[in-house]
Each structure stands twice: as structure tokens, then as C-alpha cells.
Amino acid sequence: MTSSLPTRRSLLLGALGGAAALLLTACGSSGSATGASSADGSQITPSMQAQSGPYQGDSLGRTFDKPAVTLTDTSGKPFDLVAGTRGKAMLLYFGYTHCPDVCPTTMGDIAVAVSKLPKDQQSKVDVVFVTTDPARDTPSEIRTWLNAFNPNFIGLTGDIDTIIAAAKSVGVYVAAPVKGQEPVHGAQTLGFLPADGKAHVLYTSGTTTAVFEHDLPLLIKGVTP
């Protein structure tokens, strides 16, 4: 993925000319946010400002509140997402366990980055995985799946309509699984800051471990983009 980006970007730059150069650079990695929309209907896109900022992920250019939902954790207990992760940085991803490529790749890249943080920092970030296929992903299956990455990752399930609404509130497109079709996973991971509990940074599918490694200490420190 990473190696193809410069090519695509330079092609775009060539086509659009010098004036667009700063803008495209600021738009960051893969710009594909197809189908993603926020609660108010606006498209979720990286910041269009021509500045890079401290993060390697894409600055949202706005913020999203942490979804105010209570879901079920992998021990089967209710989990209030706002209260349960208060005061910590958080990465939020919507996906499903029977997903061969993007979901394990995303969680794996995050897991490697988290494992490289100093121990005291690791406890200051919550990685939250919300299933988009709750009919199939039981709490114990989610636990087994997450344990392959990091036993401290939080796995949540619940009513699919609640999950869809929670995803939509942070600009992530999720749809109810349709029989005979592959379920949908979020096209992006959101980075929340510890102090305000709001999402400020966006990581599209294909974001590398190196980017998470770079950004996690900033999120933990509460640096605003």
C-alpha cells in the first residue's frame, strides 16, 4: 500500500499541477472515505488545510464526540463506552472477526505499535474493537480473536442498529450484514484524545504500523492536531 501511494500521488500532482500540490500533501494517505458520513450528513474527510500538523494520521478538521453507547464487552457485561474509556487516549475501529484481510491487518498494525510503547504508556491508551457482525461474533469469539493481537484490547458487541448509529455518529459507515454478502467493516480508525474524549485524528485502511507508532504517544499526551 505505502509503496503505491507516491506513484498515485505524483500522478495526481502531475495532472493537477503545482497549485494543488500543498493541498494533496496535506490530504495525507489514501483519501478513500467512500460511503462514510457523519451524523449531520457531512462527508468525513481529512482536513483540507494546507498544513501537516504533528500527526501522521489525517486531522479530521473537526471533532467527533465519543459515541454515548452502552454495549456488551467480551465478558458479557455492559460497557459504557464514554465512562469505560474516560481519561485515556482511544483508538476506535469497527470490524468483524471473520474478515481475512483488512480487519486483522488493521488490528495487527495497531497491536505492533502499542507493543512498542513503554509499559506505562500502554496503559494510557484503550484500543476498542466494535463488531459489525454481532450475530456471528459472540463475546467469547471476539475475545479469542483480540487475544491474538493484545489481550488488553477492548471488544464490544451489541444490537446492530446501536452499532450502526454509534459508527455513524463518528462518521464511520457500517451496514447490517446481508445474508450471502460479506459484512462491512469501518474504512477508518479514529483517534480520541484523553482530555476531551473527542476524535481528532483519522486513520484510513492501510495505515502502517509506523504511523500508529508515531501518533500513539501524541494521542496519549493529548496533543491537538
Binding site: 472515505a33 474478515c99 485502511s205
Partner: peptide, 10 residues
């Protein structure tokens, strides 16, 4: 054989 897209695979 599959191709991943932004939010699913085909």
C-alpha cells in the same frame, strides 16, 4: 480470491 475495498471485499 478477493479484493479488499475501503469497507468490505469483493
Amino acid at each position: 480470491m478477493h479484493q479488499s475495498t475501503a469497507s468490505t471485499m469483493v
